[in-house]
């Protein structure tokens, strides 16, 4: 008899995996995006299951609210988004399957060899701790990567503005 906890875990995992498989095999690109969305939502559910609320909310806000919406927008702006796509050639299918198999075996071996044991030290995923860790400058802190990421995003934003800006020609008058 499995505990309710384990049942929820397996249900969520089945949901994530089946949505992922459907996302890869669907012949309609918009449906693929929607399946991807469900897969990501399932992962957020797993985070909630692990009581990592902050990570789960960020997963939803960033992936569902940001990235999937972006993907859907770009699908809207492409032609023939409603058509059924051609299936990939056989060779590609075989190699993708092989890649998946190798990836699976590698992960499985890693997990199996390492021998994780449940219930180690408790960690505190509170928002306040995450925040101070993010901005700490000592050995455990992430101030430098945080700032680097900010600078990267800022430059990307400026780049966007420059691209989007209208170039006003110097008038003759």
């Amino acid at each position: 008899m499995m505990s309710a906890n384990a049942v929820i875990f397996y249900m969520l995992s089945v949901f994530v995996l089946s949505a992922g498989i459907l996302s890869v095999t669907s012949r309609k690109i918009f449906r693929s995006a929607i399946w991807l969305l469900f897969s990501l939502m399932g992962i957020a559910g797993l985070y909630f299951w692990m009581e990592l609320d902050f990570l789960a909310a960020v997963q939803i806000a960033v992936y569902v609210g940001g990235i999937v919406v972006l993907i859907i927008f770009s699908i809207f702006l492409t032609e023939q988004s409603g058509r059924e796509m051609q299936g990939p050639p056989l060779a590609r299918n075989i190699f993708s399957l092989l890649a998946v198999a190798f990836g699976f075996v590698l992960t499985w071996l890693l997990i199996y060899r390492y021998g994780f044991h449940a219930g180690g030290r408790k960690f505190d995923p509170g928002v306040g701790r995450i925040g101070s860790q993010m901005l700490a400058t000592d050995g455990q802190g992430y101030a430098l990567p945080f700032e680097l990421a900010s600078v990267l995003l800022l430059s990307a934003m400026i780049g966007c503005i420059v691209i989007a800006m209208k170039t006003t020609k110097k008038s003759d008058a």
Partner: peptide, 8 residues
């Protein structure tokens, strides 16, 4: 976060 799901 959840309110952004309704966009989808």
């Amino acid at each position: 976060a959840i309110s952004s799901v309704s966009v989808i």
